[in-house]
Amino acid sequence: MIRFITAVGHSTLQLLTSLGRASLLLLAMLRGLPSVLKRPRLLIDQMHSVGVLTISIVSISGLFVGMVLALQSHHILSRFGADSALGLMVAAALIRELGPVLSALLFTGRAGSALTAEIGLMKATEQLSSLEMMAVNPKYHILAPRFLASFLSVPLLAALFSSLGVLGGWLVGGVILGVDEAAFWGGMQGGIDLRNDLINGVIKSITFGFVCAWIAIYQGYDCVPTSEGVSRATTRTVVQTSMAVLGLDFILTALMFNH
């Protein structure tokens, strides 16, 4: 019994200390942002490796998600003679939920895990320590550019995902299934509100970008510097980010869309 209580206390303390380390790391990275802006080169390289290289997977997924969404909704909506709501349904689902959430999940799988592995290996091969030896702060030069690049990339990728999803929905709904185009776009424009839907979707994706970047970099920086430790940290990044994104999505939806 006592052993059980001790175990609970131990894991609670571990959780709290890791939360504390993560917050300190976040603060250090935020303090490093001005020095990143002074050297845009660092940021551009990272934007390339986390953002540009993720475009392909995000755009292809977006297109197919939109197409599947249109096929499935058409199947059900046509039963009630409500085909004209197809455009609205596809756009609302993509802009409010699927765009921000799925692009954040894809980002973690494609770029977040790579970030963790990269930073973890830097730590394991003592590159971070050697930077410190040379009086270069790795938090400013290695971590902060990666953080900012991920944070900026996720909202852009989410917008790309939603747009291509809408186009995919139009391809399937308007071109292949023959839903009236005026009803498709008109219903969408009538039902989607700039502030309520689009801006809230962008706020969601900004939040997710922050979470993705923070967790990936913290896990890499905090990993056990062995090959096993790096592999575990990479797994933890994907698992924790996915859970955080889905949980946050519920909370944000409850806050935003509870008219």
Binding site: H48, P155, L164, V166, M188, L194, D197, L198
Partner: peptide, 25 residues
């Protein structure tokens, strides 16, 4: 690399603009 990043940022903002104008009317 710079061209790639520039394109990425432009495409991202273009997508936002598309959503604002074409989708939200």
């Amino acid at each position: 690399i710079e061209t790639g990043v520039g394109l990425f940022v432009l495409i991202g903002f273009g997508a936002l603009l598309f959503l604002a104008i074409q989708v939200s009317g």
